[in-house]
Write a protein that binds this DNA or RNA. Structure first.
Lengths: 194, 194
DNA sequence: CGAAAATTTGACATGACTCAACTGGAGTGG
DNA sequence: CCACTCCAGTTGAGTCATGTCAAATTTTCG
C-alpha cells in the first residue's frame, strides 16, 4: 500500500507510534498522475507538497522565449513542490510535470501546519530535510561555477545515476544549463577518450 | 546593546515573552571579529550559527587552483554559517571571512537544539527562514542559467544594493561567477549605453 | 512500417576567460 | 608633502568553451 512507503521512508529518520501514524494518515491524500500530466503549473498556486512513492517528475521554469529550464528531478522518496509558492500560497514560478506515471502522497498547507503542531517530531523532520536541501542547492551553485560542462555532467551521473537512466538526454542538458547539442558533443568526446 | 538587535529582528516574525527572551539570552554569546578575520575556515567544523548585528562577511569556497568562489555575502540581520558543516558537525566546505569589523550573536549546535525544545516557536521560525533561503537559492540557480552575465549583474544590483556599495568589485564578480576583468567590461558597456 | 521524437554532426558565431600591460587612488614612510 | 608601493580596477589581443542553426541520422512507438 502506498501509505506504507511513506511510513517506511519516515522510519529511517523518526519513529512514529500507531497513534501518530493514524493522525498522519488522516491528513494526507493519494493521487496518481499520468505521464505528461502537470502536478503544478507556473502561475497557479502550488496546493500540495508531494511525496513520490513511484514515478518520476521534472520541475522546470519557462523563460520568456518559451525555453524550459529544469530545476530538479523527482523520483521515489523525494519531496516535490514549488516550495516558494506553497509556503506563501502565491502563484508558482515553476511547473512540475510527470515524466512517468507518478503516484504521490499529498499534504495541503493547512494539513501540514496542523501536523506540525500535533506531531512536533514532524516539524523537526521537515526542518532537517529542508536544511539538507539548502546545503545541496548551495553546493550546486558552487559546482556550476567551478566546473566545466563536461565535469558537471560527470558529477551529475555520479550523484544521480538512477535519474540519468530514466530521463531523456535533452532534459539532462537542460538541468545542467547547457544545450542538448553540446551535451551530445560532450558524450561523444567521453566515448572517444576511453 | 547587541542582544536587542536580535530581539528586534525576531519580533518582526515571532513574539517572545520575557521569560523566553531570558532563555534565549542565556543560550547565546557575543563576539566581535576584526576586518579580515575568519569566522569559519574550510576544513574546520563550523561551531556556530552567527546572527550579524553589524558588519559584513563573505562566504567562499577555495578551489584546487586557490581561486576564491564567493557563495554569499552577509550583512546586518543575516544568519551566517557553513550550514552543512554546522548541522552535521563535520569539516566545513566554505570559509567565512569578515570584510568589515563584524559583531555577531552566536549559537552553538547544542544550545540551538535545546532552544528548539524549550521554545518550539523558534524551531518553527528557523524552519521558515531556511525554507526562504532554499527558495532563494533555487531561484539563483535558475537565474544563472537563464541570464547573461550582464543581466545577472543588473539583477544583483537590484536585489542587494546595500551590498554592492560595501564590497569591492572583484568580489561581486566572484559572486556572479565571472572574472573581475569581464565585470569591468560589463560596467563600461553599461556606462556607454546611457 | 511510418511518423514523430530524440540525438548526432558540422559550420559558424559569440560570450566569457586568460594574460599582460596600464591607470589611478590610498596609504606609508622619509 | 613628495616618492614609493600596493591594490583595485581598466583595457586590449588572442583564445576557448559553449551556443545557434540547419541538416542528417537514429530511436521510439503507435
Amino acid at each position: 500500500m502506498q501509505f506504507q512507503s511513506l511510513i517506511n521512508y519516515l522510519s529511517t529518520f523518526i519513529s512514529l507510534d500507531e497513534n501518530e501514524q493514524d493522525i498522519l494518515a488522516s491528513k494526507v491524500t493519494h493521487r496518481t498522475y499520468l505521464k505528461n500530466q502537470y502536478m503544478v503549473q507556473q502561475g497557479d498556486v502550488c496546493k500540495y507538497v508531494n511525496f513520490i512513492t513511484s514515478g518520476c517528475t521534472k520541475t522546470f521554469y519557462l523563460d520568456n522565449d518559451g525555453t524550459e529550464h529544469i530545476v530538479m528531478f523527482g523520483i521515489e522518496n523525494w519531496w516535490i513542490a514549488d516550495l516558494g509558492s506553497f509556503i506563501t500560497q502565491s502563484p508558482a514560478d515553476y511547473n512540475v510535470q510527470c515524466i512517468e506515471t507518478t503516484e504521490v502522497i499529498q499534504f495541503t498547507h493547512q494539513n501540514l501546519e496542523s501536523l506540525y503542531t500535533q506531531i512536533p517530531k514532524l516539524e523537526r523532520f521537515f526542518r532537517k530535510i529542508i536544511e539538507r536541501a539548502l546545503v545541496a542547492s548551495q553546493k550546486r551553485i558552487v559546482r556550476n561555477f567551478t566546473h566545466s560542462a563536461k565535469d558537471n555532467y560527470l558529477i551529475f551521473k555520479e550523484l544521480y545515476p538512477k535519474i540519468e537512466q530514466r530521463v531523456p538526454q535533452y532534459m539532462i542538458a537542460s538541468y545542467l544549463g547547457i544545450t542538448k547539442e553540446f551535451l551530445s558533443k560532450i558524450k561523444s568526446e567521453l566515448i572517444f577518450e576511453k
